[in-house]
């Protein structure tokens, strides 16, 4: 196990460098970062040249990259368009996004798995069919539609919630945005749980559990769920990474100042440092989440052993 983790951590190094380099190159293709600094007007040539020299943008690209990476390793992620250090932006944005992700994941686990169990055990019954249709609707409607619709109905029409989230972004304020963010994954979790459960219900070991005279509840929880949730756990694990970075739409709709919001601003203002910095951290989050999922896999299924 220890060796496996060490190997996986070492593998992260080339992935990390490759990913950052790619992002760095892509952001450079986006256009002139100086133009973004001057806002709507065009910069005058002298100022632009001076700024270029000041930011080191006149150097060749590989020098820019090595300089940037050198700085990153000393904890300096550069600064945003308004002069705020990127690390400061991260410090304010990540806790908000983490809270949002936690809310979303909780929805996925609680509602998704519960619906999956209910439908999986009652396959072909009315409950199953209606939930199945519902998940199909949720999956096919884009997030910005569900988000805006809920905001309009709950926030504006009925005024049950505040339509936009305050900068503090407490858990209470994040319930509806979290539900919106989770909705598509929630539908997938439901379907995955349902299929997995229905499949395992016919398995020999469940028949054995019945033949042992175990109560139904114990059969479902200890024998059926334990096996059926392995793929679901994998899905939710990888989803954590996706939710952390992919909340751009939801965060825009509800005005949540999280990672998605900052990334959006960075792209809009063509601020290389914000974008590269945030995406780099997200790459790390993805890698770590994947590693944890793989390790969890071995815990859940004893047939899998890492050496």
């Amino acid at each position: 196990m220890g060796r496996y983790v060490a190997r996986r951590l070492l593998q992260m190094i080339p992935v990390f460098f490759g990913a950052t380099l790619l992002i760095f190159l892509m952001v450079n293709v986006m256009g002139d970062p100086i133009a973004g600094l001057c806002g709507e007007r065009a910069c005058d040539t002298a100022t632009a040249a001076q700024l270029k020299r000041q930011f080191g943008l006149d150097m060749p690209l590989w020098r820019q990259y090595t300089t940037y990476m050198g700085n990153v390793f000393t904890g300096d992620f550069g600064s945003a368009f308004n002069g705020q250090p990127v690390t400061q932006l991260m410090a304010s944005a990540f806790p908000v996004t983490i809270r949002l992700t936690v809310v979303a994941i909780l929805f996925e686990i609680v509602i998704g798995i519960a619906l999956g169990v209910v439908t999986g055990l009652r396959r072909g019954r009315p409950v199953d069919t209606s939930v199945l249709v519902l998940t199909l609707v949720v999956i096919s409607v884009p997030t910005f539609v569900t988000g805006l619709l809920l905001q309009l109905l709950l926030g504006v029409q009925w005024a049950w919630i505040k339509p936009s989230v305050s900068p503090e972004a407490t858990f209470g304020e994040l319930i509806v945005p979290g539900l919106v963010l989770a909705s598509v994954s929630l539908a997938y979790v439901t379907r995955l749980t349902r299929t997995s459960l229905a499949e395992n219900r016919r398995s020999d070991y469940v028949r054995t559990a019945v033949a042992k005279g175990l109560p139904r509840r114990r059969i479902v929880v200890r024998h059926l769920l334990r096996n059926s949730l392995i793929p679901v756990v994998t899905f939710i694990g990888t989803d954590i990474g996706a939710l952390m970075g992919g909340a751009i739409v939801t965060e825009r709709i509800f005005n949540i100042h999280g990672v998605g919001y900052q990334l959006y601003q960075g792209i809009l203002r063509q601020n290389t440092q914000t974008v590269v910095g945030f995406v780099t951290v997200l790459v790390l989050v993805f890698l770590v989440a994947n590693l944890l999922v793989d390790l969890l896999y071995a815990v859940l299924d004893p047939r899998i052993r890492y050496a």
Partner: peptide, 20 residues
């Protein structure tokens, strides 16, 4: 079931729960 009448199945590998 299990207490008065018990059953032995054919394929022990698939009839035993793999994760317990």
């Amino acid at each position: 079931r299990g207490r008065k009448i018990a059953m032995i199945f054919q394929d022990a590998l698939s009839s035993l729960n793999p994760v317990l």
